[in-house]
Design a protein around this nucleic acid. Structure first.
Lengths: 255, 255
DNA sequence: AACCCCGGTCGACAATGTCGAACACTGTTG
DNA sequence: CAACAGTGTTCGACATTGTCGACCGGGGTT
């Protein structure tokens, strides 16, 4: 495979940098972070500004992401087949379970939320479509890792952040959990990300049976789990049924 | 101002092309649309694919927007000051008025929705944060045009699409409407976009008094307007109050 | 089997982007 | 009050870099 177009790769790196370091960055900081000459960085940023991908704060002179990206991002949602097929099944799942439903896919080793249905009868929730969740501490993420050995290895190379006492951080614990998920066909997460919260998720398969995403619900641990501390079987069934339905819509043969 | 970085400008054009022609495009179509040699287009697209901005459908070989854009888009929302300052005031406005509230800004001569609060007690609504609205047929858009002569001229150069019989399409009608909006300090739209729907909007000013966005509500015409067909004064006051509050938060001196 | 369209590859050429020094400006510091 | 340390920005010479068009291999269709 021939090489990349250097300037475009650099432009993308600048955009990612601006996205990660939430807030505004000066041209000097950008150049330093990416190890580029200031002049070069400036040229790239200027064209990104011309096309609306970054904006410049007039008073401070610093740069931030631009409005054009918002439209591109939502345009992605329009063509994303995983999302469009999921919508029909996510709403019923939320209604039946009474919990918030999210659909995610793997992006760069993390979980990208492509759809989100609020918990019924609860208003104050923030939409987190487009946000990235940690793969090792969410039910969605663990499902996705279970069926993507490459990503799973990458996560275990790094140091998984311990959000709570129950977060799986060692490679041993993660490997065992993922293997169990593969056997069961679904994953649970109980207070591994936030105390008092739990989640259940199952894999969504696309054409050819490949896992292309995951669907899951999350809520207070005392509603997700039964008295013995295990996920309620009825909820698990709901989630798995929804996952199978979406998979069927996506053209997965018989899952 | 020195020139742009050619390849980046081209890459941006490809992304916009993919966003507009909703669906997948082949490399040939891309090259033809932008008048580029196939080889060149391929190199750019390949790089965009490597950074996750476009994805390729394995079976058809066609390209579409990639997942990384979704995250960049929402990252933009996180740093967007207009949006973050608006949120505190959009919810109360929706609650007081009982209607859906939207906040928009001008992008490329169209209205980009940066925040959206659903109408209270109504569930089935689709979130249109990130979507583009026509400037000449929405209350938000007319407000923004009224305070941006450049964009207003551009819109009038083109041929404004007539959505309904009441849509303003001639330069004369638009110019008069915008002038009136400037005098009043707010705008209304009654069945100019969709029959049976109406909206009210007011300008949001940033530091220095410049108009940086607009806030408005929309709903069924019989709830927005009173018996005589004019927008209800109480609703207009609500909207203007909210716009002033946001402007104050943004640092506009006395508006 | 001949054809046409597709996406992908390759290598030569020069247009293109890169680079580092210099500029104008601001706010701070001695 | 001047020197300084920052900032974002400009410029022009150089050669790296991306562009370009012909060519390859494969699927469909005719």
């Amino acid at each position: 495979m021939p090489g990349q177009v250097q300037s475009i790769a650099r432009a993308a790196a600048i955009l990612r940098l601006l996205a990660s370091s939430s807030g505004r960055l000066g041209i000097g900081e950008i150049a330093r972070s990416l190890d580029l000459p200031k002049g070069t960085a400036h040229g790239i940023v200027r064209t990104l500004q011309d096309v609306g991908f970054v904006e410049q704060d007039k008073t401070s002179g610093k740069y931030q992401l631009g409005a054009a990206l918002l439209h591109l991002g939502t345009s992605y949602l329009d063509v994303n087949e995983l999302r469009s097929r999921s919508i029909n099944w996510a709403d019923p799942l939320a209604a039946r379970s009474g919990e918030a439903v999210r659909i995610g896919t793997l992006l760069d080793g993390k979980v990208l939320v492509v759809h989100h249905v609020f918990r019924p009868d609860d208003t104050l929730q923030t939409l987190d479509v487009g946000s990235l969740l940690p793969p090792h501490a969410t039910a969605l993420g663990k499902v996705l890792l279970a069926y993507d050995v490459g990503a799973a290895n990458t996560v275990m190379q790094g140091e998984p952040e311990p959000y709570t006492r129950r977060t799986l951080v060692t490679a041993r614990a993660l490997t065992r959990a993922l293997s169990e998920i593969r056997d069961n066909g679904w994953a649970a997460e109980i207070e591994e990300m936030t105390p008092g919260k739990a989640g259940i998720a199952a894999p969504i398969r696309g054409y050819g049976g490949l896992v292309v995403g995951a669907i899951g619900l999350s809520g207070p641990v005392d509603r997700i789990c039964d008295g013995s501390g295990a996920p309620r079987p009825t909820l698990v069934t709901y989630v798995r049924d929804a996952a199978r339905a979406v998979s069927r819509d996506l053209g997965a043969a018989r899952w």
